[in-house]
Every structure is written in structure tokens, then in C-alpha cells.
Design a protein around this nucleic acid. Structure first.
Lengths: 346, 346
DNA sequence: CTGAAAGCGCTTACAG
DNA sequence: CTGAAAGCGCTTACAG
């Protein structure tokens, strides 16, 4: 077991102070280029790795901001909860989270202002959940990243901005799984999909549609239509009615939105329960009952709190440990049947 | 944001030294009962929580032993890899892992001796992968836990021993998922299962059988037989032949063992590929091909390296932070189709 | 039973 | 550009 190398060892070997070693290693100013090279080289030679516990103890607190718009959906709050949880777990490592839920009516201006303030106030980095329309956001992100205050997007993404990285669901794979599953249960029968928004710039929705269609083609599953329900129960309800009226011979349905419950209720009411194979999304109160009755055959789930937790944790690791991030982190969807549902409900 | 409370704050308030506060809080000897109560009470009042970074920096190294028998299966080595990985991630927190792979011929005596040595040598705790037959093991575990050297079981369990906790797969749910999936794909048709060992005291195997049968009953899936293949490709090969000979009308098969590849090969050879719905286990090289061809319809997977990683991490948290462990930690199985396989192969 | 002090491995003003 | 020293929040011999 090779004893761990400390900055003291490097300092001693080079006959310089630990302060200089520290500056050199962490890319801080006030070191001659020559000394820096020397330190860096011997550090590598000796296999030096800074001790994280010591670092976090000695440095000043890292502040991380978290910003989301208020929403009636549970989803965002789950993400927030995950971020808070990650923050608590890191509390002993000198990080502080500042979690802000901005009123819808204040978006995007209010959110942008808070981001700017955080940039002034010495925050280490910022996590934000972008909305569909966020004019002006790209610019603030660029300004902040110029100032070395990285911004991270979660849930949705602003791929053309200067955000450091994004954490979101792998909705493409969700779509593919849904199509493959329906092709197994109702091979060759016409199938349809519900999505929140068609033809928008919303990456995650577009990707789930793409994945669904792609896999359907591969499995020769005929897709009759893709319906939009705008994340709105009312619309979902009516869209379901329309779907079943237009396609009474429907074999499979993928509900790729937050409104699985509403859609299933309508399916049941119209007497289609069990006749159509249904893949839902997320986990919601009535799910167990629908699975038991055979109205739903599977649901595709990803823990939203993980998005928040990972965004927080990865940003921390970038800030505190200089970990080079991926551009996009995607979370894996899981196929949940009635027999493993118990593993996902607390 | 309430400032964090340190032992220094407690010491100052009570006009005693931090050394005494430390002893009181960590249940160390040499403190009067009275002082201890006082310290404990004010610590609670003030909301004191020891800073983990500082603790790990100051205390002496915790040594954790890891013991497994050599095996030709990849499985154990994946578990080992996971434990090593967890150890590396904790390296900055003053933990040291000692990973030992014992020759089969030396089991269980050799393993027991090493455990005893570790107990003498001041190890903080030990992780072991029990074999089916481990006479004498229970006794050593009892001795060690008496000496405050907790032993943890992974993969398999010794539920009647004094092990601190166990980390293993949730094979009951795996069995249930397999049955439910087969009931969906081939409703009412006769189904069978392969297991490694029937009628042994091996908990994980028995639980997967129980889960499979239980769910099959629920979904009225007729189970014609359960075949044993002893984790041996030869046996698996012959058992497959026997199965198909005895039940040419078979609708579904759950391969709940490490030999999915062998079984599928035989199924293909005998021309049953695609005619029987198959749920396999684990992820192995030919899997993708079998999924594509429709020989396998799904596989049930759990990252074996997670078992090692979690065993290490939870034991560390018990040792370093006094975290009270559960008795059993089970890992969730995932249903993998061809469309999400890419997420599981590196 | 209790305390003073050194030490864990870093970072950070401060002084030069 | 460089260094001496204090400090982060604990633990641990050592002395009393």
C-alpha cells in the first residue's frame, strides 16, 4: 500500500512552501511559470491526488443556486426534492444550496434577474429548469459562464446556450421501449401515442416521439397517430375520446406524458379497458389499480428526484473537484410491471 | 441559514474541553456519566452533527476486508470490482480495503483463517461472499462480532449467523416479473423455469422460484416444471433438451440462472427459437443477437458490481458514521428489452 | 475523569 | 512571485 502523497511531500522535495505548491496545482495566479511546471511535473511523478476531505474543510463554502418556475405538476417539486437531498448529503463538504421557486408570472424575467444576482453574489454555479420559452435566457447564461459561474440545465435543456451540462431523462429510449413492448403484446395491430407537445422545440418530447416511431418501424408496428395533450388533464380526456372514436380497432397506446391517469380513466369509461394494450408513464396513485385490472400493462418510470440530485452532485463535483462533466447526462427509464411496482413506491 | 455547530461551541458553552466533548459524544470510556449526559443533551439542543470530512481526516484509517472464493463465473469478480470501486471512491475518507480471493480448495478453512487474522489485525469490518456450504463460518462470525468486528454477507446470505447485514439481489421480484411477463406474452400456455439449484438452503435461488410460482398462480400461468442446471453449462444444455422433449407445447421459459446463453443456443438448435417466449437473466455477449432474433424476449438484470459497491459503502457508513444498517439490502432487478439494452452494456 | 496540544491535509489572507 | 502561519472541525496520545 503506497503511502498517500501530500502537498507537504511535494513542497519538501522541491524545497518550497506548501502555499506555492497549492497555487501551482490549483492553477491560481501568483506563481512563476517555471515553478508551476516543476510542481505539476513532480506532483504527477509522485502520484499526488488532493485529499477531498481536507480540501472541503479548508476552502470557503461553495454556493449553488437552484431555480425553477412554480408549477402545478408534482414533477418539478420532485426534482427540487432530489436537489435538496443531494445538498444535504454534501453539507459536510462545505456546500450551500439556495433553492428558489419563481412564480410563473415572473418568468422568465424574474428568474433571469435572480440568476444575475447570484452571479454577483459569488455563487459557484447555478442549476435551472428551463421553460419552453425563455427569451433572454441564453444571453444571461453566456454572461455568467464568462464570469466563471457555470449554469446547468435540468429536466429540459437549452442545447444552444453556453450551459455547462444538462441532466434529463432518456426519453428516446422510453419511446423505444414503449413501441417494442406494444409490438410484443399486440403485434401488427395499430398503435398510437400521447405526447405533451408535438412540433415544439422541446427536445425531450420530440425525442420520445422519435424513439417511439423509430422502434415501431423496426418492429413493423403501424402507428396511426400521435396525439397532443399539452400536459393538461382536460385536453387529455378529450383527446382520448377522439382517439378511440377515430380508431376503434386500436391495439396499443403509449401515454408518454404526465396524464396517464386521466387517459386510463377515459379508456375504462368507454369500455376499452384490457382491449387495448397500454404503456403509461410515471408512477401515480391509481396506477396499481389499473395494472391489476389490466387497463395498463406497464409503465415507464424514471425517478424525477434523481435529475435534481444528479444535477446538484455533478455541479458540485465540477466546482469542488474540477471533474470534467459530460455535455448531457441522461437517466435510464425503467419498465415497471405490476410485479415490481412495489419497488418504486415508498 | 443557521451556522453549523461544532464541538468547540459545545465545549465553550459547558466550559469543558473539546476532548471531553468528543469522548462523550462518541461513547468513549473515561467520561463521568454526569458529564456525558450533559454533553449529549446540549449537543442535541444545539443541533450538533459531527462534520464527516473533519472526522475522517482526524481519525485513524479504517480497514475493511473483502473475502470471496475463486470462481470460474464472472459474477463474483464483478462483485469484487464493485467493492474495489467503492473503496477507491472512499479513499479520501481514510478507508483501506483488503481484497482477498481464496482458492476453492482452501474453502471454507482458508477463508475462516483469514477472517480470524483480520479480526486480530485490527480490521474494522469484513465483507464475505458465503458459499453454499460453509461449516464453521457461523461460529467465526459470532466470535468476530463479539470483538466488535462486524461481518457482512454479500450475494448470498447466512441469515442465521450474527452477520451485521446482507446485500443481495431481490430474486423474488425477478421471479415475479418473469412470470408476469410470460403471462402477458403467452397467456395460459404452459411455462417452465430453470434454476441453479432446487431444494437447497440457498435463499436467493429459493426466493426466485417462490416468486415465479406465486406470480404464475396469480396470473393463472400453468407451470409444468422447474429444472435444475447447477450453474453448469453442460447440465444446462442437457436440461434444455430434456425440457423440450418432455414439453413440446411449451409456451414460456424463465431462465433464472447464469446459463442463459447455453440454454438459448440449444433452443435455437432445436428450432424452437421464437416459438417459445423466453425471459433470460443477466447480460452476456450473445444476448443482443438473441434479442434481435426473438429467441429471447427480455432479460432480467441487476448490476452485480452494485452488490459489492453497496456492501462496502454501507459497511463503511456503519463503521465511520455509526449509521444503523438494515438487516438486508436488496437490489432491484430491471427488465431489459432489446430497445434499452444499450443502456446496460458499456 | 479531564485538558492542553499536536496533528490530519489542505486553503487563505497577510506580509514580504 | 513566495513563504510563515493560522485555520477548517475533528481525534488522539500524553500528562495530570
Amino acid at each position: 500500500m503506497d503511502k498517500k502523497v501530500t502537498i507537504y511531500d511535494i513542497a519538501a522535495k522541491l524545497n518550497i512552501s506548501t502555499a506555492t505548491v497549492n497555487r501551482a496545482i490549483n492553477g491560481k495566479p501568483r506563481v512563476s511559470a517555471e515553478t508551476r511546471r516543476l510542481v505539476l511535473d513532480t506532483a504527477r511523478e509522485m502520484g499526488f491526488k488532493a485529499n477531498k476531505a481536507a480540501v472541503s474543510l479548508a476552502r470557503k463554502t461553495i454556493k449553488i443556486g437552484f431555480l425553477m418556475a412554480e408549477s402545478e405538476l408534482d414533477y418539478g417539486h420532485e426534482v427540487l426534492r432530489g436537489a435538496r437531498y443531494a445538498c444535504e448529503r454534501l453539507a459536510d463538504f462545505n456546500v450551500q444550496g439556495d433553492f428558489q421557486v419563481v412564480r410563473q408570472s415572473d418568468c422568465p424575467q424574474g428568474m433571469i434577474r435572480i440568476m444575475q444576482d447570484m452571479g454577483q453574489a459569488g455563487y459557484g454555479g447555478i442549476i435551472m429548469l428551463p421553460q419552453y420559452e425563455m427569451p433572454g435566457c441564453e444571453r444571461v447564461i453566456a454572461e455568467l459562464s464568462q464570469k466563471q459561474v457555470p449554469v446547468v440545465t435540468a429536466v429540459s435543456d437549452l442545447p444552444h446556450s453556453k450551459r455547462l451540462f444538462s441532466v434529463r431523462n432518456n426519453t428516446r429510449v422510453s419511446g423505444k421501449m414503449a413501441a417494442e413492448f406494444l409490438a410484443m403484446l399486440a403485434p401488427g395491430k395499430p398503435a398510437a401515442m400521447f405526447t405533451a407537445y408535438k412540433n415544439t422545440n422541446s427536445l425531450v418530447h420530440q425525442e420520445s416521439i422519435d424513439g417511439f416511431l423509430q422502434e415501431a418501424r423496426l418492429k413493423t408496428l403501424p402507428i396511426v397517430d400521435i396525439y397532443e395533450n399539452q400536459d393538461n388533464p382536460q385536453t387529455a380526456y378529450r383527446a382520448t375520446e377522439k382517439l378511440l372514436r377515430e380508431h376503434p380497432d386500436l391495439g396499443g397506446l403509449y401515454i408518454g406524458t404526465a396524464n396517464s391517469g386521466t387517459v386510463c380513466r377515459k379508456i375504462s369509461e368507454l369500455g376499452y379497458g384490457g382491449k387495448i394494450k397500454v404503456v403509461a408513464s410515471d408512477i401515480f396513485p391509481e396506477l396499481n389499480e389499473y395494472l391489476r385490472q389490466g387497463v395498463i400493462h406497464a409503465t415507464i418510470f424514471q425517478e424525477p428526484s434523481n435529475i435534481g440530485a444528479l444535477a446538484f452532485r455533478y455541479l458540485y463535483e465540477y466546482l469542488a473537484e474540477g471533474r470534467k462533466p459530460e455535455s448531457v447526462y441522461t437517466l435510464n427509464p425503467q419498465l415497471v410491471l405490476s410485479s415490481n411496482l412495489e419497488l418504486f413506491v415508498r
